[in-house]
Computed example of a mutant assay.
Amino acid sequence: MKMHLAELNIGRLLAPTDDPRVKEFMDNLDRINGLGKRMPGFVWMMEGSGEPGTGNTEAKIGGDPQFVSNLTVWEDVESLERFVWGTVHRKFYERREEWFEVLGKMHFVMWWVPAGHKPTLEEALAKLEHRERNGDSDEAFGWSWLKEAKMHKTHSCRPSAA
């Protein structure tokens, strides 16, 4: 059975989505998400309302409107790495402390899903909880768990906010 790579990244914005402190981030969501959707190897992204400039900010975690999530599926590790570390996405990732709180717990997880499967936010949050509770495993993992992942070793930033 062909497997694809799912990933969830969550963060808590420093301010509500309509606050000037997160305006630059919000103003670029459509551009960065659109770039991701056009990347070779992109399969699927959890979508929000479709309203311009909102990304998927309507999917509140724990009822908190400042918790935002990004849930995507990719054909393979290399495709996701190319998007994360090899495009303008990296510039926004490097500036994440300007818009997001530093979280005291895990905020990123990946796992394999059967091709064609579109994970729910609940499923993804369960994977994140599993990784936080048990560490990296075949069920839920970070970049260093994947031997195919190479770009994160030289391109990633120091650990910090979402």
Results as ranks from 00 to 15, higher is better:
D64P: 11
D76K: 03
G142R: 12
I32S: 05
A126P: 03
T17C: 12
I61G: 06
K105G: 13
P65E: 11
R95Q: 14
E139M: 10
N33P: 07
L80P: 02
R131Q: 09
L71P: 03
L14V: 11
G86H: 05
N134C: 12
V113Q: 00
T120Y: 04
G53M: 02
E58V: 14
K150N: 13
H4G: 05
L8W: 02
D27T: 11
G142D: 14
F100G: 02
H117T: 09
E148W: 10
F141G: 05
K2I: 12
R82C: 11
A126S: 11
F108R: 08
W74A: 01
L146W: 04
V22A: 07
G62P: 06
G36A: 14
W99C: 00
L128A: 03
E101N: 06
V102E: 12
G53W: 01
F67K: 09
A161N: 13
C157G: 12
E51K: 13
D76G: 11
M45L: 15
S144W: 10
A126C: 01
N28P: 05
K150C: 05
V84A: 11
D19K: 00
K37E: 15
P52T: 01
G50M: 07
K147E: 15
M45G: 01
N134P: 04
G62Q: 08
T17E: 12
L125Y: 08
S160N: 14
G11D: 01
G48Q: 05
D138C: 05
T54H: 10
W74F: 01
R133L: 14
A115F: 09
W143H: 12
N56F: 11
S144R: 14
E98H: 09
S137N: 09
N56V: 12
N56W: 10
G50F: 07
E139Q: 09
H152L: 06
L13N: 00
R158C: 09
E78I: 07
A140M: 07
H117S: 09
G53V: 02
E97C: 07
T120G: 08
L14D: 04
S144T: 14
C157V: 13
K37V: 06
G50D: 10
F100H: 00
L13Q: 06
L29Q: 00
A149V: 08
F141Y: 10
G63D: 06
P52I: 05
S137V: 04
I10M: 12
E123D: 10
L80H: 06
V68R: 07
W111T: 01
F25I: 00
V88F: 11
